[in-house]
């Protein structure tokens, strides 16, 4: 009755649709994604150098502070309505870096402000980023377990 591979599925039509639907110009979009993504990383590197030479930060503190500055900049650009324009051009290039994560938290927060602070902004803040957090946590737990087991077995020090 419904959905894919069922009674109503008109194979001939679906094939016609996929033939006529415009395709993504991959060389172009990949180029956009890589240069913007690379450029964001370069900005990160620049921030890192400034923080380490001007404030003498190093190690985890330096990495944390660099991420914080990038997150702040992304949130600011989202608020100013600029980041979505970068996203339209760069696609994955501006989604993959940490700035994309910040954008995915800030944009629903702005959008759902009209439904109030608690049930709107706060509740809907993670509608886009939620899965990333879930898989991030699961991934880190799994990695930790593997690391621990390998340590017990004496494979790694």
């Amino acid at each position: 009755m419904t959905g894919k591979n069922n009674a109503n599925f008109n194979k001939e039509y679906v094939e016609l649709v996929s033939k006529l639907t415009p395709k993504t110009n991959e060389p172009k979009t990949l180029f956009h994604a890589f240069w913007v993504g690379g450029f964001i990383c370069m900005i990160g590197q620049f921030i890192k150098i400034v923080l380490s030479s001007a404030f003498g930060l190093y190690g985890d503190n330096l990495a944390g502070a660099t991420s914080m500055v990038l997150i702040f900049l992304s949130a600011l650009l989202t608020g100013l309505g600029v980041y979505d324009r970068i996203g339209k051009y760069a696609g994955g290039g501006s989604i993959v870096p940490i700035t994309g994560f910040a954008n995915s938290v800030v944009s629903p927060a702005m959008e759902f402000k009209s439904e109030g602070f608690v049930y709107g902004l706060s509740a809907k803040m993670f509608t886009v980023a939620g899965p990333i957090i879930v898989f991030g946590v699961i991934g880190s737990v799994a990695t930790g377990l593997i690391y621990y087991v390998l340590g017990l077995l004496g494979v790694i020090a």
Binding site: Y83, G87, K88, I95, S107, P108, M110, F112, V128
Partner: peptide
């Protein structure tokens, strides 16, 4: 998606 999310619209 939210308006300010930097997502691409397909062609």
């Amino acid at each position: 998606y939210p308006l300010e999310l930097g997502a691409i619209r397909p062609a």
